[in-house]
Every structure is written in structure tokens, then in C-alpha cells.
Simulated assay, not measured.
Amino acid sequence: PNPHRRLTLLVYLDRFEELGAFVAEIASLGPSAMEAVDGESLRLLPRDALGVPESAGAMLLVEFDEGDMDGIAKAVVERIAPRFRLSRGVEVADDPERQAILWKVRRSLLPTISQRPGLRKAWGFVEDPIVPRDRVPEFIAFLVDLARRHDTVAGIYGHIGDGNTHYRPLFDPTDPIDFERMRALRTEFDDAVLERFRGAPSAEHGIGRIRAETLPRIWGPAVYDIMRRIKRALDPGGLLNPGVLLSDEPWWATWGGLEARSPM
């Protein structure tokens, strides 16, 4: 059933480094949703039109749909928020129209970066990683630095409450130099997600073609071999979804649309 009441809180932090501690405090109150956007990504948005403070290093949008709503709001505003450096006071909304406005910043990020002018587009080749929840702020900081070191920027936003992050670096794959940056970023990304952060490259969007080459590392050689043998037994001619899920091709070789600059 739909909840009888929802409570939405919008928080802008001056320091991205404080996001993890703030999230830990909020998580103890039992939110139904927690969405975060890093400061670099906020700079890709029309701040004035969306009311984003200039000093914001991170945005956190939190929603509750059960419990003592008034008590929760009071705890956040009076007990938790004063211990952090906020870009402005916590906004608390329980009116559906105002709540929709608060969600607008989070929901406008992908459409905004996807429609940015220029040849560099927001490609989804590292789009959907998931890591342990307590490491999400550290992971987002890594993603910011990863884009910077590969000479680009990225839209980064995530379901910080369940460890899932969306990462959209801007590249032009028809430029040979940019394409090499793209490939190098992907290699470093895969290594970090799987080894440093003990996560997985896909939380919501499946494996398909673009993540197929990572499966032996995710499942392990023994399980991967069993899956391939099952596939060969049921589809000896390789007619069913060739190249999907089980493939030796590099991610970029089988990605339709890559040459057309039409991000997926």
C-alpha cells in the first residue's frame, strides 16, 4: 500500500568529505530512500535555475515514509545538522508539490548532462556499479578523481542507501585519443570496483554485452565455465542472443551505437 505520509529532506553540504558521516547518522533513522549527488556533478547543472547553493560540495536527498515523522525531522534539523557544515539549512517538506520540486535536482542530472552541447557525451559504459554501503562516499570520491585523471568530467549520482552509483563520464569515442582515455578509465574502473571496493559492475541494469568481459572475475573461472557449458548444451549453434552475457569480445567491440555518438 502507498504510505499515508512522506517526509522529504534536502541537504546541501559544503564539504563532500562529510557526506559519509552525515549518511551514517541519517541511516540510523530508517529512511526509505537516500540519493546523493557530488559537487562536481552539481557544477554541471544550471545552479541558479535549480536553486543549488554555489558552495555545495554534495547534495543529499532523503525520504521517510514511516515512523514518527515530526520526531525524525526534529532530530535531523536540531541534533544532526548542526554538527556539519551546511551550504544552507536543511529543507523539510511533506507537501507533495514541494517534494516534487526537491526531487527535481536529482532527476534532472542525467537529462542535463545527456543534452550537453559538444562532441563529448555522457556514455554509460561504467554506469551502474554497486559497492558496500559504508564505502559509497569513498567510492564517489574515487570516481571524481578517476574522471579528473582521465581528463574529463562526469555525472555522478547514486542510491547511496543501497550502495548503487550511476557514473557517466563525458567522452568522444570518435576521437582516437579520447577513445584511449575511455578504455583506460574502464580498465581502472573495473579493477577498483572488483578488487579495491569488493563490489560489482552492475546493480540494476544487467550484464548484457558491455559488462560481459567482467563476468569471469565476478563469478570466478569455475562457475563461469559451468555457465558457458550450459549455454553450449542448450544453444550449440550460438543462435540465442550471441555475444550477450557470455562473450570474449571487449566491451567496446560489441557496443552498437558507439561510433554514432549516441550515448546509451
Rank of each mutant, 00 (worst) to 15 (best):
T174V: 07
E213I: 05
A81T: 02
D48K: 15
A58I: 13
E249F: 09
V136Y: 01
R47A: 13
G155L: 06
L246C: 13
G206V: 09
R209F: 08
K104D: 08
S32F: 07
I26K: 13
A154H: 03
R43W: 11
R183F: 01
D128F: 11
L119T: 10
M264E: 15
I72S: 06
M34Q: 15
A260C: 10
G118W: 06
L194S: 04
R196L: 04
K104W: 05
M227H: 09
L9G: 01
A233G: 03
D151F: 15
A81M: 07
A21I: 03
L258R: 11
L45Y: 08
G20C: 02
A75D: 14
D225M: 00
R232K: 14
E195R: 12
L194H: 06
R88N: 06
W219D: 03
F142G: 04
T152I: 10
L185G: 03
A154C: 09
E204Q: 08
E188L: 01
T254P: 01
T112C: 01
L119R: 15
D128Y: 09
R232A: 14
P31S: 05
E17T: 11
A192R: 15
K231G: 06
P31F: 06
F64K: 02
R43M: 13
H4L: 15
V244L: 10
V126W: 00
S28Q: 15
R198T: 01
A233Y: 02
D14W: 00
L110H: 08
A233T: 05
S114I: 03
V193E: 07
I113F: 01
R47P: 02
R228A: 01
R228P: 00
G163Q: 08
R85G: 09
G243Q: 02
R229T: 04
V105F: 00
G124I: 07
R83D: 13
S262D: 11
A56H: 11
P263E: 02
W123Q: 12
L42I: 10
R116C: 04
A222D: 11
L29E: 07
D38V: 02
A192Y: 10
H205R: 14
R196W: 03
Y224M: 08
R186Y: 14
I210R: 05
F22H: 06
K231T: 09
R43Q: 12
R198G: 05
L50C: 03
G220W: 05
I177D: 11
A49V: 12
R261M: 09
A93E: 08
